[in-house]
Structure formats: structure tokens, C-alpha cells
Design a binder for these strands. Structure first.
Length: 1041
RNA sequence: GCUCGAGUGGUGGAAUUGGUAGACACGUUGGACUUAAAAUCCAAUGGGUAGUAAUGCCCGUACGGGUUCAAGUCCCGUCUCGAGUACCA
């Protein structure tokens, strides 16, 4: 084989790696360990496109590099295979999601006969060094039985704020037995009942269980949830984008439901502080910090008759500025405190608010609305009456759902007070800032300003301790205490879906009971349809065998009416359950006795390099940190953070091709009224065919309306263009002709209208963009007329503008997706250029973290490099490498490349090492180098990036072992040492020419040599040297004048 | 609105602690080989300008200032684009 044949080489080595299990990682080794992990893919039916493997290639390069560097590398892959798309497909086709998921992973044919390549096959073709023996799938019972076990662990735990860790619930029970709720500082809801040891011991079993439920880290609660009627399920906040569901874009409403919750809020502080030590992009940490949303302040109680209204404030020091209070319309006290006179107004407002969707409320921030309840609370310090309002700018879900309004220092309160100024219940704004004018706006910069009208706080400011003094006073009078609030809410954990982990829970007397761990997994039951039941129960409500027998300890038929049979939970777990702990399962993936052994976890510790998209910032990355902290507290793992170093790869964008459909219209120049389809203009001009035109021809032949300043590409169709020539031809005879030809479709009224010279109608065009499937393009951007007949996106009855047979498409960069017809499959690239070229090219596109458009045009350069690399080891007759010593130049090329590649991988700068490979191969070709001394280490150098060709060359070089563990070449400085250096010689900082000067001379000598130079003298002629800067090895600069 | 990030040739992008801006690749142009095409190889390629030429000169890293012998890099201000977030009391 003399030419580079990527197909046979790649097939050969992929098979070799698979049969020899080349990349199998061992759990005991003398080598240092390295764990590189990619974010769990969801195996969709659309398959991989070239954007997906980007991160996998990067982690694979690092993994292979670390093996060369002598590490024991764990580089696993698996599937987050529970999820909504498979379920929706199941609803549509009736196919079991397990089947479609299997097909999507392993390949096959879908229900409509489309061939599915399968994620696994697609990945195998790219030559990843995954240890496939450790593959996990979240939807496999062997895996999810441990997800169920972790749920039980959460149920069996409570959060002890004093120890600042999760503790077994048995510990809480024994403390209750001994001393009741005394000295218990647990993460729970506010205001739980207190009891003594004697009371506890007197409670019935059921009562005790009910109380414990309030403390558990996963608990049942009636919560207002985001209910999506179209999907028949509840969505988490991060599954809603702009008020509609992330998947499908369905509307979302609020509804109260009994749900399993996760007490992630107990971990808020640790999740926040834990971020500090992580080597993550600052932006991701910032997103998590915002999401956790810590604010320090105080709880303040206002007495209102027999009621107590609690508010949270970050500025208790402004307490004397309280002018009124506002409650969320949903606040539970509203009905009780509203006076008879205000009842109607309050009811009407509550109704109006409830009718507005969450989305409307969020979008409409500017409108101020609210109603006075008629009630007055008592100021805890001044005892003055404080009017109580309701308003939807106060969110029911944050803090206590009530605020003390301090208009002099808060913009929203100020706006509210001003809007209702003069009405009943809205007193004049109290100003507590000394010497500050608040007649125009609230005083935002209040931190340093001394307070006035504030009793004991007068003269103090926020910065000089007013806050602490206020809290102290409030505590003294029993009306408040210091408190830290978090925006982070407890996470809803129940989903009304089929394709997820079942809960290991049955219900006895309405109380949830955990099934013993030894009976897991509780396998997903079969159902006849994947939809909610008639009466609104989740899909599992359709299962006929879905009850738990406590005697036999197994799932039995619902018809079984023995006393020991209880109904099982009908909800399933959300998508993030399985992905929150999978990184540990990989450490010991085939363990049948436990989720992973302590020894395996201790050996692999945590993930050294995690690569994936930044879209998981508030979902997966936060929840898995939460679960790991729990596993840590319960002694299950030795680490508290799962992902030490993370890199977020940028999205690869697709280029969508467009042509434009011409739509002719008449427009009156005076009134700008346009008349289109009803006149039959299209029929007359184009014989009722669609006419397509390209953007360049629009720009060439049509003139944009003068009234339009500039047009963005995507807006091109919103404006009229007109053809200058056609405009000229629009005299009366044209319209007579028009009328004759299209008698039927033109009314007399329209005809009179457009032929009336005073009205001055002209012909104009709109251009509507039409997508073109990428595979119909020739030479990248040419659309030929013959392919339109088979296109799904363009009208079959068509012609091109001016009867052209082909036109040039224009492009827009968009997200790569099946629905946009701009997907490029890695399989096609592997066919045409090979996996090594694909790997190199994906890296060559630019920095890993940056989003970039995929443009196949540049790939030929990388393919050319592969061929040149191959040719270095071959002559016309075949493989040819000499054992002669390499030239110093070649050694220099080799060693500078070693250094560069090493530095680049350490900095995750993969694009620059591809360049340096190209430079090396270009130089070695130039030098006609074919010495083993250089070519052997070069193969190892290239191997992480282009492993197939490297293996092939390695074996041609006479090695029987795989290249994968060959030691990485050692960089030796001595090959780079030179006797001279090319100095840039500049004058006043501007480089004029370069000089080759010796390296090993002193600064003074250097200066003498430079000054002796003829060119330097020429430059200096007639000028004076003011200063000479010589930086040895860098630059020579003369300041002249 | 707030927070963060980014603006470099026709294109993707290089440029270590401030030290030769545009590496590498695509594209384009010209040439060699070929009946032709593909492939391959060679040369040129930021803009302007003077010269027959060798070779000069000027301008250039979004825009306006500043620090420095020297700024894509540091500082101040402005603009544009992208991402995240959104009544959080």
C-alpha cells in the first residue's frame, strides 16, 4: 500500500482495538490515575451530527495523551437513556420506548422504515478510546436499581444544620425519643410543631411517620407546580423557557399537586462555597451562584390583629422607612385580613392575577398593579399603623411572599407608592435618609448615608453597623431575627411520565413506605398506552400489575385484594436522577452487589476532566453536586465535588442554504397600499408557477425601497423591492394586456384602481426565504433546477428567475438540527475523508470553547495533511524509513513540535497543535527527512489526534504492540539551541528589518555589532540616538529623533 | 435593565510574561503536469502608494483617548455582537 487508504486502515484498527480491548481500564494499577468523562449523551433518533463528537474528540485526545504519559486512564461512555423524546415517540407510534432507545443506540430501522445508524456504531467509527466494558444506560434495571437506592437513602436522611451535614433519620428518631425537638436544628419548613420526648413517645406510629416526613431529604409536599397540560406532566423551572415548555413549546400553568420533593435547599450554602475550589469557567460558576441566590438579612414580624405577617428583608436597617406592606395576591392571609369594604376589589384583583399566566406576569414588568386590603399592621418598633396592600410584583414563591415596602430606598416600592399616591391606604413616603431628596426617585446608593427619623438608628448607616443594631433590637422585642435566604428552591422530583425510574415506594394508609433495598429494582411495568389515564393519573396508573405485596415482597396484580397488598407510586423520577451519580458507576460498572465498591471509588476518586455543554449549568451540574454531597455525608464516597475540572465545548453551528420565492404585488405609491394574490398577479406574470431567485440576483436586479434604511439577511422578505425595468414597462397597455389574460381573476374595481394613473401603482416584489436541503447542492452552493422536483421543501411547479437552470444559494448560520435541514453527519465525513481527518478537522476549527459554524470547505486542507504525513513514511515503492541519523534541522522540528503539542494539550488548545503538526510535516517534507529517529516519535505525537494512521505507521515501523501505551517522546531543549537569532531591529518602536546575531554575546557587544551594521547606519543617518533598548533574545530598538 | 464574554485579512483562526501582527488552513489568482478533468506540485495573496525592477514609503487588530522605548495584548471611555438572567425584597 503506497497511498493513504483511510478506509482500510481505520476499519482494521477499530476492529483491533475492539477485539483486544485495548482501552480497558483496570481498577488497580501502580500508575497514577486519570479520569476523563464526557457528559452523558441522550440517544435520540436523529443520531449524532458533527457537533456532538467535538467534546468526545477533545476528551479522547487527552485520554490517549495521558496513556502515553503513563497514566491509568478511565474514559467511559454510556447513555442517559430515559427521557421525554422516546416517550413522545412511543405515544405517537405505540412502540415501547425501550425498543426505540435500543435502536437509537445499537442501530436498526425505525417504524417508518428509516435506517438508524445507532450512536454506538457512529462513535465506533470515530475511533474513540472508550472502555466499552463499563458502558451504562440509565434505563437499564441493573443501573436504576441503584438510582432507586439513592432515593431511599435520601428518604432515610435529614439535614442537621448544627453538624452541617446529612444524617441518618434513625439518629433523629433517637433524639426525638430522648429530648423531643429540643436542640434540633434541622433543615425543614418554618414553624414546625415542637414537642417533648414524652409527647413523641406517646404519638402513634402514623403520627411519628408524618412528623418525620417533614424532616426527610426527600419528602411529599403539596406544591404549586408548573403543570403542562399538553404534556400531561410537571416541569422543573429549568425545563421552562420563556414561559413555555423547553421541549415542544407548550403553555405551562400553575397548579397544586402532591409531589416528591428534594431538599436541595439544605445544601445551598455548601453548593455555593464548594464552587470556589472548582476549575470551571467563571461564567458557569456565576450562573450557579445566581441560581442559589444567597441574600443575608432578617425576618421581621408585623402584628396584624391576631395574625402575624412575616417578611424577609435584606435591609432591616431601613425599618423606620416602612410606609406600607405588600403581600403576594396568593398569600394565605389575604382573605383573613381583607376588610369588608375592600373585599370586592381584592377578589377581583386576585382573579385577574390568577388568570394571567406566569409568562405574562414575567414579560410585563413595567405595569404597576395592586389593591389595598383595608387592613393595617402594627410596626414592630414604632407601633405605628402600616397599611397592607397586595400586588403581583411580590412573588409568592420567594421569602415569605410578603415585603415591607421602603419606598425611599427601593425603586419598586417607590414606583408602587407613587402610582397609588393619594389613594386610601397609601400614606406619604417616609424618608429616613439624612439630607437626601427623594422627590424624583428612590435613593439607591444608600449604603453610606446616615439614617434619620429612625429612633435609635439615627446617625448610623448600613456600613457603620445599623443592620446589626436593627436586628439586635428586633430580637430583643421578639419581632424578628437575622436570617439568610436562598433563592434556590427545593426541587420537584416527581414526573407524571412513563419513561423514567419508578419510585421504590408504596402507600399504606396514605403514608409512603420504602421498599427494602434488597428487593430492588422495582422494574417499570408494562402499560397499554403511554398517556395519562382518563382521570388524570400518570401513565403508570394504566399498569394492571402495579401493587406491592409486603409478604412476598414483589410487585403483584392490582386485583390482588389481600391485606398485605398496597398501591405503588405512580410517578416516575425526572431525567436528572440517573445522571446525578453515573460518574461513580463507571468506576465499578459491573458490580452486581452494590452501586460501586468503596475501593473503586477511593482509587478513581472523582472526575479529573469533564467535558460537555454549558447548557447544563443549572440542571445536571447543580443536582449532581447535591447528590454527591449527600453520598459524601453518608460515607458512600470520599469526595464532595464530582467534577474538579470542567471544559464547556462550544456549539458547532450549521449553515442553512436559502433561495427566495418571488411574490409580485402592486403597491400604490401614494397610499402604500399593496394588492397581491387577489389580482392574479402571480398567475399573469409567472403562469401560476413559483419563481425562485437567489440573494445575489435580488441585489443585482432589484432596488430596495428608499424608505428602508438597511436590511438584515433574515428580514429581507419583510420589505418591498422593485425591478427598475419592470417599473418602466407599467403603462396602461400593460394592464390592458393583463386584464385580457386574466379575465377571471381581476375584478373591475381592482382593474380601475391599478390603471388609474393618479393612483400610480407600481409592480414590486417580496422575497420569501425557502430552505434548501444541503444534499441538493452542487459545488457547495449551486442549486440546479432539476433537483427541485424531488425536494420536500420547495414547490415542484417552479422556475428560476430569468429561466436560469441553476442559481447560487445564500447561507445563514444556525443551530445544527434536523428540522433546519443543515445537519452534517460524521458518518459521511468518515466515508469520504476518514475518522482521523474528522478528528483533526473538528479540533482545527478553532478553540474548543468557542461556538463555530461547520463548513466542510476547509477539510481538504486537513486531508492533504494526512496524505503528506503518510508520504513521509513512504516512497513510490512502499514503506520506507531509514535508520540513519536525522539532520539537526529535523531534530529541531521534532522537538519543537513535542514541546508545542505537550503545552497545547495541557492548556486544552487543540487547534494550535493541529497547526504545529502541519508545520512539522511541511518542514520534514522540505528536509526530505525519512529517518526513524524522527518519524517514530512523530507517530506517537500524532497518535492522540489521529490514532488510526498512527497505529498503522507504528506497526509498519515494526512494532507488535499497540501505539496507545508507547511512551510520549521526551522533549530535549538541546535540539532547539541555536548559535544565532534573527533579531527585529526597530526604530522608535517600528520594525524596519531583521538581523541575524549571535546569541552568546553580551548586551554591549550586541549593541556594537548592531551599530556597525550598514543598514542601521543608513537608518540613523542625520539622526541622534536618544536611547537604545536591547532585550537579548527578543528585540533591538533605537529611539531616535 | 443587570452579569459575563467577545470584536484581528475574502473565510476559520494564530500571536508565551507588552517585544517581527496575520502562523496554519480554506478561498482566490497565476504557473507546471494532463487530450481533458481530478489529484499532485510550485508561486503570489491585509489595504494603499511610488518604481521597469530590485526595493521603498504610508495605513492597519471595532471606535476615541491614555500609559510605554514598544500595545491586538495594560488603563479609561464609546459602539456592536453573543451568552446567561430577569420584579429575589
Amino acid at each position: 500500500m503506497t497511498h493513504y487508504d483511510h478506509k482500510s486502515i481505520e476499519a482494521k484498527w477499530q476492529k483491533h482495538w475492539a477485539t483486544n480491548k485495548t482501552f480497558k481500564a483496570t481498577n488497580n494499577s501502580d500508575k497514577p490515575k486519570f479520569y476523563a468523562l464526557d457528559m452523558f449523551p441522550y440517544p435520540s433518533g436523529a443520531g449524532l451530527h458533527v457537533g456532538h463528537p467535538l467534546g468526545y474528540i477533545a476528551s479522547d485526545i487527552v485520554s490517549r495523551y495521558k496513556r502515553h504519559k503513563g497514566f491509568n486512564v478511565l474514559h467511559p461512555m454510556g447513555y442517559d437513556s430515559f427521557g421525554l423524546p422516546a416517550e413522545q415517540y412511543a405515544i405517537q407510534t405505540g412502540q415501547h420506548p425501550a425498543e426505540t432507545t435500543k435502536t437509537n443506540i445499537e442501530g436498526g430501522t425505525d417504524k417508518s422504515g428509516n435506517k438508524i445508524a445507532g450512536y454506538r456504531n457512529q462513535m465506533d467509527r470515530i475511533g474513540f478510546s472508550f472502555d466499552w466494558d463499563r458502558e451504562v444506560r440509565t434505563s437499564s434495571p441493573d443501573y436504576y436499581k441503584y438510582t432507586q437506592e439513592i432515593f431511599i437513602m435520601l428518604f432515610d436522611s435529614w439535614y442537621d444544620n448544627d453538624a452541617d451535614k446529612a444524617q441518618p433519620i434513625s439518629l433523629l428518631e433517637s433524639r426525638f425519643r430522648e429530648s423531643g425537638t429540643n436542640n434540633i436544628n434541622a433543615a425543614t419548613e418554618e414553624d414546625l410543631r415542637h414537642f417533648t420526648a414524652a409527647e413523641w413517645n406517646a404519638f402513634t406510629e402514623k403520627e411519628q411517620q408524618e412528623i418525620l416526613l417533614d424532616y426527610r431529604l426527600t419528602f411529599l409536599a403539596d406544591t404549586e407546580v408548573n403543570w403542562c397540560p399538553a404534556l400531561g406532566t410537571v416541569l422543573a423551572n429549568d425545563e421552562i423557557v420563556n414561559g413555555v415548555s423547553e421541549r415542544g413549546g407548550h403553555p405551562v400553568v400553575r397548579k397544586k399537586m402532591r409531589q416528591w420533593m428534594m431538599r436541595i435547599s439544605a445544601f445551598a450554602e455548601r453548593l455555593l462555597t464548594g464552587l470556589e475550589g472548582l476549575d470551571w469557567a467563571e461564567s458557569i460558576k456565576e450562573i450557579q451562584r445566581n441560581w442559589i441566590g444567597k441574600s443575608v438579612g432578617a425576618m421581621v414580624s408585623f402584628q396584624l390583629d391576631s395574625h402575624k405577617v412575616d417578611v424577609f428583608t435584606t435591609r432591616p436597617d431601613t425599618i423606620y422607612g416602612v410606609t406600607f406592606m405588600t403581600l403576594a395576591p396568593e398569600h394565605e392571609l389575604v382573605d383573613q385580613i381583607t376588610t369588608a369594604a375592600q373585599k370586592d376589589a381584592v377578589e377581583a384583583y386576585k382573579k385577574a392575577t390568577a388568570a394571567r399566566s406566569e409568562r405574562e406576569r414575567m414579560a410585563d414588568v413595567k405595569t404597576i398593579s395592586g389593591v389595598f386590603t383595608g387592613a393595617y399592621a402594627t410596626h414592630p418598633l414604632s407601633s405605628e399603623p402600616v397599611p397592607v396592600w397586595i400586588g403581583d410584583y411580590v412573588l409568592a414563591g420567594y421569602g415569605t411572599g410578603a415585603v415591607m415596602a421602603v419606598p425611599c430606598g427601593d425603586e419598586r416600592d417607590y414606583a408602587f407608592a407613587n402610582y397609588f399616591a393619594g389613594q386610601e391606604g397609601m400614606p406619604a413616603i417616609k424618608n429616613i435618609f439624612d439630607g437626601v431628596d427623594i422627590s424624583e426617585e428612590a435613593y439607591g446608593a444608600k449604603d453610606k448615608t446616615p439614617l434619620c427619623n429612625s429612633d435609635f438608628l439615627n446617625g448610623m448607616s448600613y456600613q457603620t453597623g445599623a443592620m446589626a443594631a436593627a436586628i439586635e433590637k428586633l430580637e430583643e422585642v421578639g419581632s424578628g431575627k437575622g436570617k439568610t435566604n436562598y433563592r434556590l428552591r427545593d426541587a420537584v422530583f416527581s414526573r407524571q411520565r412513563y419513561w423514567g425510574e419508578p419510585f421504590p415506594v408504596y402507600y399504606k394508609d396514605g403514608l409512603p413506605q420504602m421498599i427494602d433495598r434488597k428487593h430492588l429494582p422495582i422494574a417499570l411495568p408494562e402499560v397499554d398506552e403511554y398517556l395519562p389515564t382518563e382521570d388524570g393519573a400518570p401513565p403508570l396508573g394504566r399498569a394492571t400489575t402495579w401493587s406491592w405485596c409486603t409478604k412476598e415482597n414483589k410487585v403483584v396484580s392490582n386485583d390482588d385484594d389481600r391485606d398485605c397488598v398496597y398501591p405503588l407510586e405512580l410517578n416516575t423520577m425526572p431525567g436528572w436522577a440517573g445522571s446525578s451519580w453515573y460518574m461513580f458507576r463507571y468506576m465499578d460498572a459491573n458490580n452486581e452487589d452494590e452501586m460501586f465498591s468503596a475501593a473503586a471509588q477511593e482509587y478513581w476518586n472523582n472526575v479529573d476532566l469533564y467535558i460537555g455543554g454549558s447548557e447544563h449549568a443549572t440542571g445536571h451540574l447543580l443536582y449532581s453536586r447535591f447528590w454527591v454531597k449527600l453520598l459524601h455525608d453518608l460515607g458512600k464516597v470520599t469526595v464532595e465535588e464530582p467534577f474538579q475540572k470542567m471544559i464547556n465545548q462550544g456549539m458547532i453551528l450549521g449553515e442553512s442554504a436559502f433561495v427566495y420565492r418571488m411574490v409580485p404585488m402592486f403597491e400604490c405609491q401614494k397610499t402604500k397600499v399593496s394588492l397581491g394574490g387577489t389580482l392574479g398577479v402571480n398567475e399573469f406574470l409567472f403562469g401560476n408557477r413559483e419563481v425562485y431567485i437567489s440573494k445575489d440576483l435580488i441585489e443585482r436586479d432589484f432596488v430596495l425601497d428608499k424608505s428602508v434604511k438597511s436590511v438584515k439577511d433574515e428580514d429581507i422578505y419583510k420589505h418591498f423591492y422593485y425591478s427598475a425595468d419592470l417599473h418602466k414597462a407599467l403603462d396602461k397597455s400593460y394592464f390592458d394586456d393583463f386584464k385580457k389574460k386574466s379575465e377571471k381573476s381581476i375584478t373591475k374595481k381592482s382593474y380601475d384602481l391599478i390603471t388609474n394613473p393618479e393612483k400610480d401603482f407600481v409592480l414590486k416584489y417580496k422575497f420569501f426565504p425557502a430552505r434548501v436541503e444541503n444534499n441538493f447542492l452542487k459545488n457547495g452552493n449551486i442549486l440546479k433546477s432539476e433537483v427541485i422536483g424531488v425536494s420536500k421543501l420547495l414547490f415542484a411547479d417552479f422556475e428560476f428567475y430569468n429561466q436560469l437552470t441553476e442559481i447560487k444559494c445564500s447561507f445563514e448560520v444556525e443551530k445544527m438540527s434536523k428540522s433546519k435541514y443543515n445537519v452534517v453527519s460524521p458518518d459521511d465525513i468518515c466515508d469520504q475523508y476518514g475518522a482521523d481527518t474528522l478528528r483533526l478537522y473538528e479540533m482545527f476549527l478553532g478553540p474548543l470553547e468557542q461556538a463555530k459554524p461547520w463548513n466542510t470547505a476547509g477539510i481538504t486542507g486537513v486531508y492533504g495533511f494526512m496524505k503528506k504525513l503518510w508520504k513521509l513514511y513512504h516512497n513510490d515503492a512502499g514503506f520506507s524509513v531509514s535508520d540513519e541519523k536525522a539532520s539537526p534541522d529535523s531534530m529541531k522540528t521534532l522537538h519543537k513540535t513535542i514541546k508545542k503539542v505537550q503545552d497545547d494539550i495541557d492548556n486544552f488548545s487543540f487547534n494550535t497543535s493541529v497547526s504545529s503538526f502541519m508545520i512539522a510535516v511541511n518542514e520534514l517534507t522540505q528536509q526530505k527527512c525519512n529517518s526513524r529517529e524522527v518519524l517514530e516519535p512523530l507517530a506517537v505525537l500524532v497518535s492522540p489526534y489521529a490514532p488510526h494512521i498512527a497505529e498503522e505507521l507504528w506497526s509498519l515501523l515494526g512494532h507488535n504492540e499497540s501505539i496507545s501505551e508507547a511512551p510520549f517522546p521526551v522533549f530535549d531543549e538541546k535540539h532547539l539551541v541555536e548559535s544565532s537569532k534573527t533579531y527585529p531591529i526597530s526604530f522608535n518602536g517600528k520594525m524596519k528589518f531583521t538581523l541575524d546575531l549571535p546569541v552568546d554575546v553580551s548586551k554591549d557587544e550586541l549593541e556594537k555589532m548592531v551599530l556597525a551594521n550598514e543598514k542601521v547606519q543608513q537608518q540613523l543617518e542625520g539622526k541622534q540616538i536618544r536611547k537604545t533598548i536591547i532585550v537579548p533574545g527578543k528585540i533591538v530598538n533605537f529611539v531616535v529623533g
